[in-house]
């Protein structure tokens, strides 16, 4: 168990370093940062001043190591746009993105798991087909368009929910639903296939032979085994959702980390962009690591290995 976790931890660190290197190289190779920062009207001297001020005149590996060293100690650099430390900018906006992501995941699980179970229980019937149709539709729905449509329908026409902003908790409902839509198909399919496997297994036949109630057979014996991969994928989906919240935050004008990233990208505020990439990758890696540990806790075979 300990060895397993240790190996996962080392792997996670390696992945993080690689992602860092790639994203750093990408941003640096794709253009001259100093030129784009200075703007189209700047003179050659202005560009040089900026280059020196931000240490962009140093060799790339030196810049990279300096940045990694600073990042490791919590210093993510300063935003050109806000003239403030990037770490603080992210920290201020994190609660919104995190709340949004967790709301989305919560809604997705509440919808996907019961539907997946139902589809598995009524495998190959009309009900199963209808439920799986939801997955296909969810997969085809462009999230930003769904967001705008819901704003028009529920916010403007019916006036049930706020159009944008998160001053009240209702503000999280629409973006949460839209975000959930992206995770529902995968979670539902996984729940269904896990439950189909579990329900046709020998231990379910044993449970039936023991005279257990249908509810206990499905929700206790089958779901417990089907849930293990769902937990892992739910964590990974949360990572994708936090990464994908950039679109949702733009649609609903939520001032979260995604919005910050979008703004910084459009304005070439590259310390912020780089830090958000680093930040989201770290969260994703931490989440997958957490999923591995949760799985190990849920599966007795892994726990004692």
């Amino acid at each position: 168990m300990l060895k397993f976790l240790l190996r996962r931890l080392v792997l996670a660190l390696l992945v993080l370093i690689t992602v860092l290197t790639v994203s750093f190289t990408l941003t640096r190779l794709s253009g001259d940062v100093a030129v784009s920062m200075a703007g189209p009207t700047a003179s050659q001297e202005d560009v040089e001043t900026i280059r020196r001020a931000y240490g962009l005149d140093r060799p790339l590996p030196v810049q990279f190591l300096a940045w990694v060293g600073d990042a490791a100690s919590g210093d993510l650099g300063r935003s050109y746009l806000y003239h403030a430390p990037v770490a603080g900018l992210i920290r201020d906006r994190l609660p919104i993105t995190l709340t949004l992501g967790l709301t989305g995941l919560g809604i997705a699980l509440i919808v996907a798991i019961p539907l997946g179970i139902l589809a598995a229980m009524y495998e190959a019937t009309i009900l199963d087909r209808a439920i799986m149709m939801i997955a296909v539709i969810g997969q085809a729905m462009p999230s930003f368009w769904l967001g705008l449509s819901l704003v028009i329908l529920l916010g403007l026409r019916l006036q049930w929910l706020p159009l944008s902003g998160v001053e009240t908790w209702q503000g999280y409902i629409l973006p949460g639903v839209v975000l959930a839509f992206s995770a529902i198909p995968a979670l539902m399919r996984l729940t269904r296939s896990g439950m189909v496997d579990a329900l046709s297994s020998d231990y379910i036949r044993t449970a039936r032979a023991k005279g257990l109630t249908r509810a206990r057979i499905v929700l206790h014996h089958a779901l417990r085994n089907a849930a293990m991969p769902v937990v892992a994928v739910a964590a990974v989906q949360l990572g994708f959702m936090l990464g994908g919240s950039i679109v949702i935050e733009a649609v609903f004008s939520l001032n979260g980390v995604g919005y910050l990233a979008w703004e910084s990208i459009s304005k070439n505020d590259f310390p912020v962009v780089q830090s958000v990439v680093l930040f989201l990758a770290t969260i994703y890696i931490a989440l997958t690591l957490m999923a591995d540990m949760l799985n190990a806790l849920l599966d007795p075979r892994l726990r004692s290995a």
């Binding site: 020998d202 231990y203 036949r205 039936r208 005279g211 257990l212 109630t213 249908r214 417990r224």
Partner: peptide, 28 residues
């Protein structure tokens, strides 16, 4: 009905299966 039958199973009539490796739930 299945419900009435399930009250008999495990109580008044029991069954042992031939696949000992897979007939127990691995999670409990």
């Amino acid at each position: 009905s299945e419900r009435e039958l399930s009250k008999l199973r495990g109580d008044r009539m029991a069954m042992i299966f031939q696949e000992p490796m897979t007939s127990l739930n691995p999670a409990f």
